[in-house]
Design a protein around this nucleic acid. Structure first.
Lengths: 194, 194
DNA sequence: CTACAAAACTAACGATTGTTAGTTAAAGTT
DNA sequence: AACTTTAACTAACAATCGTTAGTTTTGTAG
């Protein structure tokens, strides 16, 4: 189906990957440049041959995954599908992105406020746009009677909370097949537990 | 129903409250003792007349709310109720505690790993016990047929994710009555959206 | 008014922070 | 072999960190 080409990551990408793992464990502010360097078995000053600073690591990590969400959500919005199918799609893309960007999502969720300048503005804007798209889907479902009459913000909040925290579950999920997880998650979030 | 007595908080409690607000905004590691002091219009060194250090603020904040959860969950476990009623109770106590301890929960969720020594061990233990209690309730519901056959970990994870993130929603909720929120949240989490 | 406790202050400490400058060693290219 | 690029290094910087010591101010009870 797909052809994969294994590309050796640049040194910069390696640094960002290592930093992401540390950020996920202890948070951006608690990880020093020396911590990142030590994890790569080099000195802190050497990092600056590849990156402009700590802030670049943060913004790269966050913008990468934020753009992934924005792209996928736009695609869903553009499609003509029943509301429930759209919500299913939202759940599925969250799971897909979480599997591939677990550390990025941890940093997006927990450390977005440490972004500076335009990066901060952009990420806040993307998040608001994302939520607004999701909100519209839910409201459409309500007005068309596909969704039981309930406070749309409660629905939005509860689904989004679960999806945004999937990254915390990536180890335990480990043995669970992604497609099974998607099916189960769709069932629980949409049809409830009784 | 209740008799409230307004007690003037000690200076120590004021410090912890102010620190909690800052921790919620930027996280424990990104808040300095000088930040906390400035928010109280005093100098950092003055804080040490009332507290032993930054770590004491963290552990006080976290242990306070962790014990609240443990106490309430034990009460639910001890009761003899149908599974669904128990899950309803879990949702309700989460909302109640979130309303009263919003900042503490933010710190518990995001900065527990910065606890040290026995405090860290104790909090991890309490969280595991809490999850295990919830898991048992769900499994009982499954075995008695009160809950649709589904992966118990998926149910546990999705409900708990939503409840643990309620603190993020405390402003928007603002105008929403607590009892209405409880009813809506129970409905969405248990009966789903269709 | 005095005495005492509470709570603020100034000044400084050693450690750690992100980052810069300048240099050196290895790897790849001509 | 000479040259260039890549990626490491040492040393150090100014700023900030949590915290301590010692002193002064403020508020309250006798």
């Amino acid at each position: 189906m797909y052809i994969y080409k294994v590309i050796k990551p640049t040194r910069k990408q390696e640094i960002i990957q290592v930093a992401a793992t540390l950020f996920k464990e202890k948070g951006y502010s608690a990880v020093s440049m020396r911590d990142i360097a030590q994890a790569m078995h080099i000195k802190a000053a050497s990092l600056y041959n590849h990156i402009s600073g700590k802030q670049e690591i943060l913004s790269t990590l966050i913008l990468e995954v934020a753009e992934a969400f924005t792209t996928e959500m736009s695609a869903i919005t553009a499609e003509t599908l029943p509301t429930l199918k759209k919500i299913e799609r939202v759940i599925e893309i969250h799971i897909d992105i979480t599997v591939n960007y677990s550390e990025n999502i941890a940093t997006l969720n927990n450390d977005w406020m440490h972004l500076e300048g335009d990066d901060l503005k952009q990420v806040v804007k993307m998040r608001e746009a994302y939520e607004e798209n999701f909100r519209r889907i839910i409201k459409q479902g309500l007005s068309q009677g596909e969704i039981k009459p309930q406070h749309p913000e409660v629905i939005l909040f509860s689904i989004l909370s679960t999806l945004r925290n999937l990254y915390l579950w990536n180890e335990k999920r480990g043995k669970m097949d992604v497609n099974v997880l998607k099916k189960d998650m769709v069932a629980v979030l949409i049809k409830g537990i009784i």
